[in-house]
């Protein structure tokens, strides 16, 4: 998986339903990128993408893996989860569309902004989902 030109890469497990720690993985990713010395505007975009993706796993999936890879010219983030998947991706990409529960909304999320926010902060965005299996989101941000 890791390319030869890769400077750094790491993967983290995200547990579905673990609201107490939701976002901590993304905070870790942010701090690692800071230590490497990535430009702070780029870090902010990567962190927002990671955080929204992590929240999606916590809110909707059973378990997921958030991995990132830094190469000289870009940062790639992959969030892969096992869960219900997304039935209608086009609909899920629309701002304001959400299937969130009240518990999720009480966390300050679930207003149908997650995937649109991820796409907005990405230079390249790919999403694949299989209903009943899970979802994979791949994002590239040029540095």
């Amino acid at each position: 998986m890791v390319e030869e030109s890769s400077i750094f890469g790491k993967g983290f497990t995200v547990r579905g339903g673990d609201f107490a720690n939701a976002g901590e993985v993304s905070c870790k990713v942010r701090n690692i990128l800071k230590e490497i010395g990535i430009n702070s505007d780029i870090i902010r975009r990567v962190a927002i993408v990671a955080y929204e993706a992590e929240m999606n796993v916590v809110m909707y999936a059973r378990e997921g893996t958030l991995s990132f890879e830094v190469t000289p010219d870009r940062i790639k983030l992959v969030m892969e989860d096992e869960g219900n998947g997304i039935e209608n991706i086009e609909l899920a990409m629309q701002e304001g569309y959400s299937t969130a529960t009240d518990e999720i909304r009480e966390m300050g999320f679930g207003a149908g902004m997650g995937l649109p926010n991820i796409k907005k902060n990405s230079d390249d965005f790919k999403i694949n989902s299989i209903v009943g299996k899970g979802t994979r989101v791949e994002v590239t941000i040029s540095t």
Binding site: A20, A22, G23, E24, S26, C27, S40, D41, R44, I48, Y51, E52, E106, M107, G108, F109, A111, M113, G114, P116, N117, K120
Partner: peptide, 27 residues
């Protein structure tokens, strides 16, 4: 709404919110 905070703020901002859970801090 934390997603709106992520979408519409700039770095160096002050956040005013009525959401008092850990998500406000992580956001």
């Amino acid at each position: 709404l934390m997603s709106d905070v992520l979408a519409f703020t700039k770095r160096g901002a002050l956040l005013l919110t009525g959401l008092t859970n850990a998500q406000a801090i992580r956001t």
